[in-house]
Write a protein that binds this DNA or RNA. Structure first.
Lengths: 251, 251
DNA sequence: TGTACATCAGTGAACGCGCGTTCACTGATGTAC
DNA sequence: TGTACATCAGTGAACGCGCGTTCACTGATGTAC
């Protein structure tokens, strides 16, 4: 119930950064409205999930007629894709920022903890976005190829820790022999993570990846219901265990 | 496009087990149709997911008018709940059967492998059912309390292995000190699993639980896309690793 | 054994809802001369 | 600087879809006397 242009005069032109090519009033308004549509879509995604994302509802909320949204967005699915991409990027940003925020970058355990706490924190702050990225696929919606790159940015933020772990931490405790056929099929993962990571660490890294996200999903989707009360402590414990199981050096 | 009663005469009365109180023709027909409705619902769930479960579509497929379904099912959500319960039970059956099928019940590793392979196999045979149980919650649908018991039957099928592991396997390798507050909040889990399982094994069991389901979900929901080719071998490797990390005795 | 009544499966129409998307239109904003 | 034209945001009506659920009804099956 808000006219799309109602506060345009106060926010729109003011927010034009100096130095950027001056935008006409139309281009400015277009930016405004586009941003508003995405924001409202984001709100719907957050409160009702992907199935609740509706162009009609967005239009309603923004005080415009449903067909007007099509001036800004080609279709519902296109908007959904954009929002998914945004979410991946947001999560990747959060994870990377957490990693960078550790003062002593040689403290691998601190970085490991920071990254995973940040990911879990984001998941709980944006449960529906998380479900969209790491939960069951949305029925009737096929993620386009564009999602692969942003998705791997998230993965990369902790995969990057495997190389220093390999050089600093010695070897993986309790190693299990890696079958040859499995070792052979790991090329792309090896390339993604970087040189110098032995197969058993690589594989345990994959396990940790699935294990951490599994723990977040279980917590978020209710599978852990009633299993333990102290969830923050549990999660920290899981983080620490994985660090040890990956051969992380003691602090 | 099938009349609900069309094959009633051939299947219905024949399937009455001898010894059971003879059912009237009406009661038999009712059973038939109810079963058919559930079967069709199951089919829709399997092919389109929970969002695609529609009473109207069921009626259509069964050749009856949409309102007729309400003679058999109180509402769409009630049917969904029933199907979810059925799915939990089906998965639990599969897991328990796999466990029981191991000839030498003292071979814990064989049982561990059998259970997890069975669970993964079921997940891939019924991806939408799996998503319903272990994926993101269905929007607008709140699982009633009735789901807790069948869900824990699945969990129980591998939790039952922790007690023999504790007595046979010595101790968890690379143990990590358990914070006191965490240990204190594990009562219900401890009660569920049974006596004699130390805290660190209990916690690593929870991690294994989340880790295994996380691996299945990642594989099924496409997160592992491109990470490795040899998926069966990878999963077996993960199963074996977890067995070792839980302190399982060498074969 | 036969009749009167109760039960209940299935019908067909309707209510009210929400959705994505298209289309011809008005009127304001921008641009070229 | 002023006018003619092009662009484009937003309108309002419509199409066609599918859904869950209710309700008064018909007619067959079952049951009590």
């Amino acid at each position: 119930m808000l006219h799309p242009l109602s506060v345009c005069g106060t926010i729109g032109p003011m927010s034009t950064s100096p130095g950027a090519p001056a935008l006409g009033i139309r281009a400015t308004a277009r930016r405004e409205v586009t941003a508003r549509i995405r924001a409202e879509g984001r709100r719907q995604l957050a409160s009702e999930g992907a199935a609740g994302l509706s162009l009609r509802a967005i239009a309603r909320e923004l005080g415009m007629v449903s067909s007007a949204v099509y001036r800004y967005v080609p279709s519902r699915d296109a908007l959904l894709t954009e929002l998914i991409l945004e979410s991946y990027s947001a999560l990747a940003d959060v994870a990377e920022a957490a990693n960078a925020s550790v003062p002593d970058q040689d403290d691998l355990e601190a970085r490991w903890r920071a990254v995973w706490r940040a990911i879990r924190g984001w998941a709980f702050a944006h449960p529906h976005d998380y479900a969209l990225l790491y939960g069951s696929p949305v029925p009737g919606y096929r993620a386009p190829q564009d999602t692969v790159a942003p998705a791997s940015r998230v993965t990369g933020s902790f995969a990057a820790l495997l190389v220093p772990l390999a050089t600093a931490g010695g070897s993986v405790p309790v190693p299990v022999a890696v079958p040859e056929s499995l070792s052979a099929s790991l090329e792309s993962t090896r390339a993604f993570v970087g040189e110098g990571v032995p197969d058993d660490l690589l594989l345990r890294g994959l396990m940790a990846w699935a294990g951490m996200f599994g723990a977040i999903s279980f917590e978020l989707f209710g599978q852990y219901e009633g299993a333990f009360a102290d969830r923050d402590t549990y999660f920290d414990y899981v983080i620490d265990q994985w660090f040890v199981l990956l051969g992380g050096p003691p602090a």
